[in-house]
Design a protein around this nucleic acid. Structure first.
Lengths: 98, 98
DNA sequence: ACGCCGATTAGCATTCTTGCTAATTAGCGG
DNA sequence: CCGCTAATTAGCAAGAATGCTAATCGGCGT
């Protein structure tokens, strides 16, 4: 679960999407329009972010509104910070090698 | 540059390595011994982390000592946190789509 | 029902990642 | 120099990620 979050964050375009959503929700097409990549490509990036629960989708009639899931982002950030502090026991951030 | 950091964080084994390094530096073999993966495989994971500047390597005679680069981890964490706060202008976390 | 627009899903090719074994480099000790 | 241990690099195969175009789905208006 944690894994899918970091994997989702691994792609620049997806981080860029999150940046765009920072100031509020946006329509899918609105987001897609800002990238050079094709629309279907962006659609898949959004799907990856949704899969990782970093964003949520809501239908607005014809179109789809995306918004950031702040708490998941917070969890990821604190997981990273947990990697810094010495010996804080919890938040181990380990999810098995493959 | 930011990109390689998040890519490096995308693999569970590599995050696990960082977790292990939390309490202090460790020898390469010492780290490798804790994983099921083969030694060369771990060596490459370490190379990826080093490439992202998340860890540093230092030769100790026959062996190699790895330690976390805390500041890069901090930067990554604050980049994520920057994605949350509304409208903070800087730290945009964008590094071009592909 | 039809056409249209917004968006996703299917299918495919290309490239990147991962992980293995085998070969190589680096340093130490006799 | 030779042998030994520590670790990395080479080379390969399998699988995942990315990006495209074409096809499809969903909802709205006529």
């Amino acid at each position: 679960m944690e894994n899918s979050v970091f994997k989702a964050l691994a792609h620049p375009a997806r981080r860029q999407v999150l940046t765009m959503l920072r100031q509020g929700p946006r329509l899918a097409g609105d987001l897609a329009a800002e990238f050079e990549a094709s629309w279907p490509t962006m659609s898949r990036h959004l799907a990856v972010l949704k899969e990782a629960d970093l964003i949520t989708a809501e239908r607005q009639g014809n179109q789809i509104l995306y918004r950031v899931n702040t708490s998941v982002l917070e969890d990821a950030a604190s997981a990273l910070l947990g990697l810094i502090g010495r010996d804080e026991g919890d938040d181990e951030l380990k999810d098995a090698a493959e």
